[in-house]
């Protein structure tokens, strides 16, 4: 088998693995929600972690982001954006949650 078609096969397999992994994680998430109900925080924590796992699977298998030197800048940018996101989301939830608490609204 020549090198090109071997590489093609390898890259296609990588895609199919990523798809299979994502599909599996999706099915597990919905099965967990269906089986245990979505009311409790433990179930939600599980769903959240599975969602995070799926993000990682798609970043690696679909977007080919990894720690190889050539894709470092892309990874740096993702990490920086994640930092900005954490500040924005964490800060908003913190400040508005605190406000709600002080205003004696029964939220957060």
């Amino acid at each position: 088998m020549d090198k090109r078609s071997e590489m093609h096969r390898r890259e296609r397999r990588r895609y199919v693995i990523g798809y299979g992994g994502s599909l599996l994680l999706t099915l597990v998430v919905f099965a967990v929600a269906h089986q245990f109900g979505i009311e409790t925080k433990g179930v939600y924590l599980t769903i959240g972690l599975l969602g995070l796992a799926q993000l990682l699977v798609q970043l690696v298998y679909f977007l080919h982001i990894d720690r190889r030197r050539s894709s470092r800048e892309d990874l740096d940018l993702i990490l920086f954006s994640t930092l900005v996101l954490l500040i924005i989301i964490g800060g908003t939830v913190w400040i508005l949650g605190n406000l709600a608490l002080r205003m004696h609204m029964h939220v957060m």
């Binding site: 800048e73 892309d74 940018l77 993702i78 920086f80 954006s81 900005v84 996101l85 924005i88 989301i89 908003t92 939830v93 508005l96 949650g97 029964h106 939220v107 957060m108």
Partner: peptide, 27 residues
């Protein structure tokens, strides 16, 4: 790479909408 920069700033925009949603769940 430029497009990737755009996508990441789009991500920040989505993040803002997520933050608003989280604080509004009870409203």
């Amino acid at each position: 790479f430029g497009f990737w920069v755009f996508l990441m700033s789009d991500l920040v925009y989505f993040g803002l909408m997520f933050a608003i949603y989280i604080t509004m769940i009870d409203a």
